[in-house]
Simulated scan of single mutants.
Amino acid sequence: MSRGPSRSFHLLGRRLAVVATAVASVVPLALTGAAAAPARAAACNGYVGLTFDDGPSGSTSALLNALQRHGLRATMFNQGQHAAANPAQVRAQVAAGMWVANHSYTHPHLTGLNQAQIDSEIARTQRAIADAGGGTPKLFRPPYGETNPTVKLVAARYGLTEIIWNVDSQDWNGASTDAIVQAAARLTNGQVILMHDWSANTLAAIPRIAQGLSGRGLCAGMISPQTGRAVAPT
């Protein structure tokens, strides 16, 4: 009879030991997970805006693949006529985590047009992108970076924030891959770089751009409609 309670206490002790071991193994994991999240966030000491104009095009798929492979997100300033002709590529941009924006319908010199013509360029692009599945753009880049009070007024009427750039990669002017990488290396927190969807040299530069940003603690962010600066993605 005396062995009954003793055995019960012995079994209870073993069970408590098992529970304690299980709890001890879980707590460090929970703490490790909690500590890991801030560590990942701390890796981004600032954000830059990677932008690609003139798409979507036959080069879009390769560009999206390169961006995704290197963990980069970007803002795609699409021409309305190209969005209308390539709706699947607009959807692919969204599916790849990119932000789709307005770059006019036919890429004209807007400052040489009257208000009605400017309105048509912007309005048709808003519709083309929305119809293609790209959502309603919040950002607008005038072709060639050319703007004036009338262009700004019309863009604002459609709830668009005008975005130019801080750094020009010169890819449109035949810049080499090395030169494009060097241009991206000049980016600082909040700044935006101009690149193009169709440039083979820009495509080749993507891995090195990603490596350079990472080495400087910079991450590819979204462009805020409120400030026009690159910020953490939401």
Rank of each mutant, 00 (worst) to 15 (best):
Q226D: 12
G217H: 11
N78G: 05
P207M: 15
I122F: 08
C44L: 03
S25Y: 00
G217S: 12
A84Y: 07
Q117P: 01
L187C: 08
M98S: 14
R124N: 12
A101D: 04
A200V: 04
T161V: 00
L11E: 06
L50P: 09
T177H: 06
G212T: 09
V151P: 05
G212C: 11
G145K: 13
M222W: 15
Q68T: 12
A205S: 05
I193A: 07
P28S: 10
L64I: 07
A179P: 00
T60F: 11
K138G: 00
N102W: 01
S120M: 04
A20H: 05
D171P: 07
R15G: 07
P87L: 15
I118R: 07
L187P: 07
S59P: 00
G46S: 08
L11F: 02
R229K: 15
A22D: 02
R229N: 08
V90K: 13
A96C: 12
T21W: 03
G97N: 12
T75S: 15
Y47N: 05
G135M: 01
A200P: 09
F77V: 07
G49M: 10
I122V: 09
N148T: 10
R73P: 03
N189K: 15
A220Y: 07
G134S: 04
Q93K: 04
F140P: 00
Q170L: 14
